[in-house]
Amino acid sequence: MSVRVSRLARLLNMVPYFLANPGISKEEAARELGVTVRDLVKDLEQLFVCGLPGYGPGDLIDLSFEEDVVSVVFSAGMDRPLRLTSAEATVLLVALRSLAEMPGMVDPTAAQGAIAKIESAVGSAALVANGEGLDASGASATAQESTVAATVRSALQRDHALRLTYYSASRDAVSERVVDPIRSLLVDDQTYLQAWCRQAEGVRLFRFDRIDGAVELDEPSVPPAQALGSDAHLELFSDDASLPQAHLRISAAHGWILDNYPMDPVQTLSDGSVEVTMRYGSLDWMARLLVGLGSAATVIGPKELVEAVRERARAALAAYDALEV
């Protein structure tokens, strides 16, 4: 009997289904799952890149479906239909809500649909007991997608170019540029658009919360072939030799700074402090950062940066003196 179910539920139960029906034909499987053969193949291709943490060749679900029949080579532990406990459903709901709140990663409507189905399957009573799923009024919370995120996601789906108005924190400047979107990424709990920047003629990462405006253009996204299929550009802070370089000393008690800023250690001194270098695009921005770090960072060079930090420090002290009058 043909039964239509959501794609998520179908994917979760496909591996046990094919284990129970070894060598079944694509046509028969599609008929029983209530989908077309084309959609079945899409589901199999999706499962082919799913698996266990590590996600290496030996961790992913392995299926054979090149011929007319489908068989499971490696199940990655999905040997029986999924049955979520209340605790498991809660963890899944928390993850889905987090994903829905990250701009540009998923369609919030689709995520909310999955959340609603899980809530319905598990039961609202179990979710209330775990303190998840309902707001103060008892209604399920709904994530709202920003106009910028929706525009970028639309351009990615339709392979269209984008015109972005973007704030660069490293240069402390707003610029407008046309980009060819490649994909959206999650890096260090922030969402980014990876795209070919026509102005810079290179792959760049654009943080969603720094995109001030986005316009989807009526022209195709055409990133060069060398920009695709490589993760070489995923480093957020590349060492651009054209930018000036600061020479700093970070105190031993403030080693956390090295984990939060793109600094390259040069040497560790006898007192535990570390000499580092750091590229910067704006002298004013860099001076503002260093003044904010206070005694945790000492500027060794270059000379213009030392003077800029001194001037900002003097201005700050003068402002304090004015307040005391």
Rank of each mutant, 00 (worst) to 15 (best):
C197W: 06
R249I: 13
G113M: 13
M14A: 12
D39V: 06
I211T: 08
S75P: 08
L40T: 04
V203L: 07
D43S: 07
R4A: 10
D284M: 07
A316E: 03
R183S: 14
A161L: 06
V49L: 11
W285N: 10
A253S: 14
L205A: 00
Y192C: 01
Q199H: 13
A169H: 12
E235S: 03
G301V: 07
S120G: 01
V178N: 07
L228Q: 10
M1D: 01
L156I: 14
R249A: 02
S270Y: 00
A253D: 11
L186R: 08
M78I: 00
R38T: 08
E201W: 02
S75K: 12
E219R: 10
A129H: 05
V299G: 10
L236T: 01
L323F: 09
L92R: 11
R31Y: 04
R177V: 08
V72D: 09
P302L: 01
E216Y: 03
E145C: 09
P81I: 12
R158S: 10
T142F: 13
R4G: 01
E32K: 15
E67S: 14
A253T: 15
P22I: 03
D59L: 02
V122I: 15
L185T: 08
A29I: 05
V325F: 03
M286T: 05
H233D: 12
A319S: 13
L236W: 09
S146W: 06
I115W: 00
R31W: 06
A315G: 04
A125H: 11
S120N: 14
V15C: 06
R80P: 00
R279S: 06
L60S: 01
G272S: 07
P53Y: 03
A200D: 14
E88F: 11
V222P: 00
C50G: 00
A200N: 10
T142P: 00
A313V: 14
T151A: 14
E132Q: 13
D59Q: 12
L12T: 11
T165I: 03
V35Y: 09
A316P: 02
G138F: 12
V3L: 14
V187Y: 10
Y192S: 02
Q267H: 12
P108A: 02
